[in-house]
Design a protein around this nucleic acid. Structure first.
Lengths: 290, 290
DNA sequence: ATGAAAGCGCTAACAT
DNA sequence: ATGTTAGCGCTTTCAT
């Protein structure tokens, strides 16, 4: 008549089974020193016998490290962010950590809510694509974090992994130009997003470098989604134009939407229109704090 | 000189600030009864003042509920699974829970590892797309779980959300036939995957129903990826064929790969080839245990 | 309505 | 090398 069979075994169960104290059991299991190989074997066997598995909540409480990381991105459904998530996931797994994933939908309130949750979960750190741009009041999230995304570089005093927009624009425009399209149209994100301004600035700088008048480039805005790209492309096609149209979209989703619009318009995509989508080139920033 | 400013405030800090005991503070914060509205207000104000945020690790330890759920899918990078993840995420958030996400890459070892991690994190439950098919020895994962995916229905005694393959095949084949393609070719997953057999069986059953000889359908296998679909399609195109080719792919990724192969072959996709990808129709199974 | 105290499972001093 | 004890932050009896 021992305790209920349905309770998960604790380190005490292991210790009793092995005939040692719980600290000895703990030492054996954590691979600490000052343990006879003999007792260690005994404890390990006992642990396996009872099916013991360390309670990470308890460990986290004692040690102050939960072994969990947070990821806050706009939308896991967007292939770009799915890739990011996958990368973070693999890296976390390799370090023996787990990843809590949240989608913010570019909603500041949702973001705030997720960050609160992350703090309460006592994650050891977070990877964040910040939706808001004004962190003058709150330049600390209350937990160790790293920024990711194109607006990341703006904050020189925080570690970040962003997209090298300048480089992306250079490659993208040069590519289109080399294909014989001197004045590509642009499909950008909504005016409210900082990334849009940065993209546009990069384009202007590049044009100056290449002796192109930036004013001749047609620009359409849209949400950073397939649908946004589709609508923007539709508007672009309604504009007066002659011959081949070439387009540089701010990300792959929008480029895909643009292709859909082209098809809907009865045009042939490779022949009548060239579309290039760019999700950015990774670039790092590590101010080395701490 | 009080304690370090860098320590996260605990409920004790709140209690001291409010001039009550920690149990009273806890009661006020958890919204329990037997509390004067006056004291509650006092405590809430104190909590806000010190920036208190509940430590979920401690709560989880006390209560036995961590407030976390686990999701184990083959690959978050696959749009189908990204959608699933997004759905699970939103649902979890709505219930005030967090989601730990893992990709198994169809690797049984990785799956086992992730499940172990989930158990150690003491998640309250898990959503799993099982990679292995033989759970005769281990029909319990050691935690509350729900299966998801096409192999889910195989296990009548566990709750699951799967794909209604029969229905998917019926719709898909009928669609292609109605478009004038009486004998579509099939691009299926690897032979090792149970889902492949189920798909094929559904096709055969449907053919019998429609008085078609299943033997005339060409079949190619491949990994459940874009690349897998591309390679399979390439092989399909190498086969002797006349006129229009129509293809039914086991999922959207493979269909996309197939389209790439078509394009690489210099063919026109809408004109020379029809491609249909199917990621399944949701279907539920709830044996109602407990 | 409030306070005192026990205890969740674990690890890290501090003994021995 | 091993055992004993305190305590992480919280909720929950049990008193009052």
């Amino acid at each position: 008549m021992s305790k209920s069979r349905n309770r998960r075994p604790t380190i005490i169960d292991v210790a009793e089974r092995a005939g040692v104290s719980k600290s000895t059991a703990a030492r054996a299991l954590t691979g600490s020193s000052n343990i006879t190989e003999e007792t260690r074997a005994k404890v390990v066997k006992a642990a396996a016998a009872v099916g013991y598995e360390r309670n990470h909540l308890a460990v986290g409480m004692r040690s102050g490290r939960s072994g969990m990381l947070g990821l806050v991105i706009p939308d896991i459904t967007n292939p770009f962010w799915a890739d990011v998530a996958r990368g973070a996931q693999d890296r976390a797994t390799k370090s023996g950590a787990s990843l809590l994933v949240f989608s913010s939908d570019w909603d500041p309130e949702a973001e705030a809510q997720h960050l609160r949750t992350l703090r309460q979960a006592r994650v050891d750190g977070a990877i964040i694509n910040p939706v808001a741009d004004n962190f003058d009041d709150l330049d600390r999230f209350g937990l160790p974090f790293v920024f990711i995304g194109s607006s990341a570089e703006r904050f020189a005093d925080v570690s970040s992994v962003g997209s090298d927009i300048t480089q992306a624009v250079r490659l993208g425009l040069d590519h289109l130009v080399s294909k014989g399209h001197p004045a590509p149209s642009l499909i950008l994100g909504p005016k409210s997003r900082l990334a849009r301004a940065r993209f546009l600035r990069a384009v202007h700088e590049h044009c100056v470098e290449r002796d192109i008048d930036p004013a001749i480039l047609a620009v359409e805005d849209g949400e950073y989604t397939v649908e946004g790209g589709r609508v923007a492309m539709r508007r672009l096609l309604e504009r007066p134009h002659v011959g081949h149209v070439s387009v540089f979209a701010a990300n792959d989703m929008m480029a895909l939407g643009a292709m859909m619009a082209v098809r809907e318009a009865g045009l042939d995509c490779p022949r009548d229109v060239s579309i290039l989508g760019f999700d950015g080139i990774p670039s790092g920033n590590s101010p080395g704090r701490g």
